[in-house]
């Protein structure tokens, strides 16, 4: 049988997944950065900064908003867990992750990617990497800015700096795990956004609130184990649950998040590799 051989000037036959992913990444990053989704990301990421600014302004006018021994680092910890980890990261991951392939299909540009000598899995991986860069490059500066505004209030920057480092890692790890999960959701379901939001606001809240081991089937559970701040109480039941079960160890968190990431990406790559995309004209 005659085998496919590259013409002079073309690349090697069967370009590897990683090399091809980097090329898809190059192609996708600019497009993703300058999309409306990035504006939404910036708005979400800007919320804690705005709250911190308001707080600082009130304090500057000596309005007694920080009472009962509440310090800036504690407020930052609350905002980090309550807003960044439990809202911003999963919501942004839903919006980006579920659209990795769907956007190309909707724009009918997927044809150009699927008729190139690259494995389809590399399209998923390359676009996933572009999403990671996009999402983290907007949210990380916002977290740092919020910390810079809040941590000095009755606290010391130097003392809470190591925690900030861990927080930034959590942001990246959160995007990695949620993004992979929602990339899989985006390739499997016809209405992935709905499924994604149901998972974030329905299932994750339920799983964390119910007794037993159900919480292990949520991403938030493993992220929670990494958060260095004192855990604010979601609900009284949540406090009770945490007392009964204890927060997961770092190793368990790493394994759980790693598993979600690997399985999510494998499923997404497999579905995209085997699926026929019929574009409507």
């Amino acid at each position: 049988m005659e085998q496919a051989t590259p013409r002079p000037g073309a690349g090697p036959a069967g370009t590897g997944v990683l090399a091809a992913s980097m090329r898809v990444f190059d192609l996708s990053l600019g497009r993703m950065l300058w999309s409306r989704r990035t504006i939404f990301t910036a708005l979400v990421a800007g919320l804690p900064v705005v709250v911190a600014l308001v707080l600082r302004t009130l304090l500057a006018f000596e309005v007694p908003v920080m009472q009962g021994g509440v310090t800036g680092p504690v407020v930052f910890g609350l905002m980090f867990w309550g807003f960044v980890v439990r809202f911003a990261i999963p919501v942004l991951a839903v919006f980006y992750g579920t659209a990795l392939i769907a956007d190309e299909v909707e724009d009918r540009t997927i044809t150009y990617l699927f008729t190139r000598p690259i494995p389809r899995a590399s399209v998923v991986l390359g676009k996933y990497l572009a999403y990671l860069v996009c999402a983290t490059s907007v949210l990380l500066p916002a977290v740092v800015l919020t910390w810079l505004l809040l941590a000095p209030i009755d606290g010391a920057l130097a003392a809470s700096f190591p925690d900030l480092g861990v927080d930034l890692v959590i942001v990246v790890v959160g995007f990695v795990a949620y993004g992979a999960l929602f990339a899989a959701v985006g390739t499997i379901f016809d209405r992935p956004l709905l499924f994604g939001l149901l998972f974030v606001f329905g299932w994750e809240n339920l799983a964390l609130a119910l007794p037993g081991q159900l919480r292990r089937a949520s991403v938030a559970h493993y992220l929670q184990g990494l958060v260095p701040h004192a855990m604010p109480a979601d609900t009284p039941l949540d406090v009770l649950q945490r007392a009964m079960t204890g927060a997961p160890g770092v190793l368990e968190c790493a394994l759980g998040l790693g598993l979600v990431t690997v399985v999510g990406l494998l499923i997404a790559a497999r579905v995209v590799s085997n699926r026929e995309y019929v574009l409507e004209h």
């Binding site: 049988m1 005659e2 496919a4 069967g14 009918r108 540009t109 044809t111 008729t115 389809r120």
Partner: peptide, 24 residues
């Protein structure tokens, strides 16, 4: 002489201009 479905290497030898008016 080669199958084309799930055979990305074949695209070194094929150039495709699709019908749809879709671009970046």
């Amino acid at each position: 002489g080669e199958p084309v479905w799930r055979n990305p290497g074949i695209y070194h030898r094929i150039g495709f201009c699709p019908e749809q008016d879709a671009f970046y």
